[in-house]
Each structure stands twice: as structure tokens, then as C-alpha cells.
Amino acid sequence: MTTNRIGVFGANGRMGLALLEAATIKEQTQLTGAYVRSSSSLLGINVNQVNSAADSAVSFSVESEVNNVDVLIDFTLPQGMRNHLKTAVAQKLPMVIGTTGLNADDMALLNDAAKHIPIVFARNYSVGVNVLLNLVQTAATKFGDDLDIEIFEAHHRHKIDAPSGTALAIGESIADAKGWNHDEVAVYDRSQVETAKSQNEIGYSVLRGGDIVGEHTAYFATMGERLELTHKASSRMTFALGAVRAACWLQNKPAGLYDMQDVLDLK
């Protein structure tokens, strides 16, 4: 049985700590790298002193000291991801990326890097959310055109990007099913709109508060009935275990840009 050696960027963050635990407890994986910024006070400290469930001999080290790993996982902010991507390409290491809030230039970097290494990029690594992406496409195609589509998402107060990457993935899946250009039909603010809602749009609404891990609902409303498809995450371990699953799946894959739908064989 092959063991996948996992290295985690941003290992001291909320998701980073969950990833350390997931890489420790999941079968066929071994945590061999926990990378933080050079200014971090955790440098040299064993990871299990910060997360006791991450029972590993690995200590926190600087991001420039990537070695002894088979695949890298990155859930950091876009600026950090850009630097980590360079490291992965230089060392020809597969990479799992869960960074959200990426712009067009970031996506161009991902596509270019994927010519050299295999990359799984997904806005959400939950199995349930990726099943939801399929369900919303079915709903979008089965209802008629006289349909109002709205997406609501809620996260903890520390989440910066809005709407969330997962909400956008849901909207993009619906737009694909309807044959729409998502950027043309997405509506993020109605505060200045004085006309009735169009059926050819996807509206987004956002809540930020407390410690909400993640909730997403797609609404399909017609005159007389409403379908609500909801996913609620109660633990970051849901996403961390999915990311580690993706890391194992990447083993021996050719260079290319993949997503969680590929990992779960949902396409």
C-alpha cells in the first residue's frame, strides 16, 4: 500500500490545522510538512502542540523548506497561493488548492501551472457540496423558464470573500445547465434596482457572523411551489478530509487542472 506524504501550506490557519489532522488520521497518508510564514512564532514547534489530534513528529517550518513530500495542499489567501504554486512547479509536485477569491489572473496562473503538474482546484472539497452541484443542474433543467433562482450562503465573521467560492460554484453550475453566461446573469446587489426581478438572473445573498462553518442554499421558486437544496457543514474536517482524499487521488495523474467532480467521478 502506497503512502502519500502530505505537505500543508498555511498550516497554522483554521483550515491548515484541520488539514494537519486530516493528513494524520486518513489511511494511506502521512503528514511530512507543515509550512508557515518566516515570521510565525510557531516555527520549530511540533504540530501536535497546536493540534493534539495531529499526532506527528513534524514541526512547523518555513514555506521555503518544502521537501520530503509527494503532494502539497494549499488553502491560503490568493497572494500566498501564487508563491506556493511557483514552488510546486519548480519541484514538480502535485498540488491541491482550495484558495477562494481568485481573480482572472490567478486562474490564468493555475491553468499555466497545470501544463507542468497535476492540480486539483475546487471551491469546496465536501462530498455533499459536490453532489449538490449535480442536483442543482437537474433542478435547473427540469423546471420551466418561469422560475426564480436565488442562492444564499452563510459563513463565520472572518471569511473575507463574498459571495463564497462555493456559492459561485453553485451559480455557475446552474448557469451551465441553463445555457447562460454566469457573469451576465449574476446579481449581487439590488439596492439600486427599481424593477421587478427577471427570471433570467441568479441572485446572491450573504450572511457573515459568529462561527458558522458554511451553509449554502439554492432556491428554485415558481408560482405555487419552491424547491430548496441546502448543504450545511458543521466541521472544517469535512473539507480537510476531502482535500486529503483529492491529494491521494492525484497520485500518478498526468499534468492538468482537475476539480473535485473528477475526484469523485461525478462527471
Results as ranks from 00 to 15, higher is better:
His158Ala: 05
Leu93Tyr: 05
Gly179Leu: 06
Tyr204Leu: 11
Met237Thr: 06
Leu264Glu: 01
His116Gln: 15
His216Ile: 14
Tyr204Arg: 09
Ala108His: 12
Asn4Pro: 03
Ala196Ile: 12
Gly128Met: 14
Asp145Trp: 00
Ser235Met: 03
Cys248Lys: 14
Val89Ser: 02
Leu264Ile: 08
Met223Val: 09
Glu150Ala: 12
Ala169Arg: 04
Ala139Leu: 13
Gly44Lys: 06
Leu17Cys: 09
Leu266Ala: 04
Asn67Gln: 12
Ser52Thr: 10
Ile202His: 02
His231Ala: 02
Asp112Glu: 12
Val71Met: 05
Asp112Val: 11
Leu168Ala: 04
Gly210Asn: 01
Asn51Ser: 15
Pro118Ile: 05
Asp189Asn: 15
Asn4His: 13
Met81Thr: 15
Tyr35Ala: 03
Ile212Thr: 14
Glu27Leu: 10
Pro118Val: 07
Phe152Pro: 07
Asn4Arg: 13
Val36Leu: 00
Val206Ser: 05
Tyr35Gly: 00
Ala23Met: 07
Lys232Asp: 09
Tyr258Phe: 15
Ala114Trp: 13
Phe75Ile: 05
Ala255Phe: 04
Gly144Asn: 14
Ala11His: 04
Ser64Leu: 06
Met95Gln: 04
Thr87Gln: 11
Leu132Val: 02
Met107Gly: 01
Ile160Phe: 02
Asp112Tyr: 06
Cys248Met: 09
Ala53Tyr: 14
Ser61Tyr: 05
Val62Thr: 15
Arg123Ala: 14
Ala154Lys: 13
Asn181Lys: 14
Glu153Gln: 15
Thr24Ser: 15
Met237Glu: 13
Lys178Met: 12
